[in-house]
Write a protein that binds this DNA or RNA. Structure first.
Lengths: 197, 197
DNA sequence: TTTTGGTTTAACCTTTTGGTTAATAAAGGT
DNA sequence: ACCTTTATTAACCAAAAGGTTAAACCAAAA
């Protein structure tokens, strides 16, 4: 692993745990096991190091979503595949959702400038498809955006609010992961169940 | 409005926008229109000012939840009432969910020490009730904790990830609020629809 | 009027933090 | 072997940020 990679990984860990404002350059250096000056040698400053980490995180999520949303499948198939694939991915990267949401909240201007490019999740086509299937009579008459919001909520929220969820529902790490494994399939079943005619 | 109240309100605004780590004492003082030294005169330090704000925020949410969860109503009635009341409350305090989730993530030890007292949301009774209604045959056989997670997800997530949701679904502030108004009723309908026999 | 108690402030202090520098070590070409 | 470029570090710096202090202010009591 190169020094730059060591720094990047350390930065990912610290930024995801503490957020941009709470992260300390010294802590990142310690985590990487190198001198603080190396951070500035490899990355210009804190902001740029953060942007690299954030961009990577975001660009891992977004393309996946668009690939599924814009495929040739039916709406039900897309819902099934999205919830399954997304949860699988986030189980491997459990800090990502909260990290992205938090930084979008604390730094909207910066994040929006990233978001407005090719890699932004774009549900336009899927919305049109939902409307078509409603007309065809496959799906009950619902508002497409509400449906999308339901899907996002059910898949993303448990990870974004992981600590709160564990606390309120009294879940150990293992129990939490078991629940998430189950959710890979039950979310789609429930949603489809509630909108199919 | 007393000086202490002015400080408290200013602190709430700044903490909710920037988080604990990102908030600056000077910014809070400016927001309150008073000298920085007054912050330390009324509240010992940043940590204690934050704890006051956080505690207030949390204690506004938790009792509501428990009142509904532990009432004498049926599960369907509880779902209907909870989603409606919670969304109504959060529309008035839209920064609360993200604020609480963020600080729980960045500072789990501290938050847990608060959470472990009387005011913590406790779904134990509701879970037992769900199990009973499943046996009775009113509700389909599902895992109660998964159901609760669905309810929390659908109601809280849109606010916690407000900026992301607006960005991805292309919603103005007004459209977002309209959607949330609709969600006061449709969430319960959909959930009940998907679990009733 | 003077005193007294709580408020409020400007100025100051200390620590933390992001960032720099100059010197050193390692690697690579000639 | 010698020079040049690339990594790496310890020590340092300046600004920001949290927190303190001593003096001023101001109302109500004596």
């Amino acid at each position: 692993m190169t020094t730059e990679e060591k720094i990047f990984n350390a930065a990912r860990i610290v930024f995801q745990k503490k957020g941009f404002a709470g992260a300390r350059m010294q802590e990142i250096a310690d985590e990487a096991g190198i001198n603080k000056a190396m951070l500035h040698y490899c990355f210009k400053n804190k902001q740029q190091l953060f942007e690299a980490v954030f961009m990577k995180a975001f660009s891992q999520l977004a393309p996946q979503i668009n690939t599924i949303f814009n495929s040739e499948k039916t709406v039900f198939e897309k819902i099934t595949q999205f919830t399954h694939d997304y949860i699988s991915f986030v189980i491997e990267n459990p800090f990502l959702p909260q990290f992205i949401i938090q930084e979008m909240n604390n730094n909207p201007e910066f994040v929006m400038s990233i978001l407005n490019h090719e890699n932004r999740p774009n549900p336009t086509l899927l919305i049109a498809q939902i409307e078509k299937e409603i007309e065809t009579g496959i799906i009950k008459p619902i508002k497409p955006k509400q449906l999308l919001l339901d899907i996002f909520s059910m898949t993303i929220f448990p990870f974004a609010a992981q600590i709160m969820v564990k606390g309120i529902l009294h879940l150990s790490d293992i129990e939490f992961n078991q629940m998430m494994e189950e959710r890979k399939t039950i979310i789609a079943q429930q949603i489809i169940n509630s909108i199919k005619k």
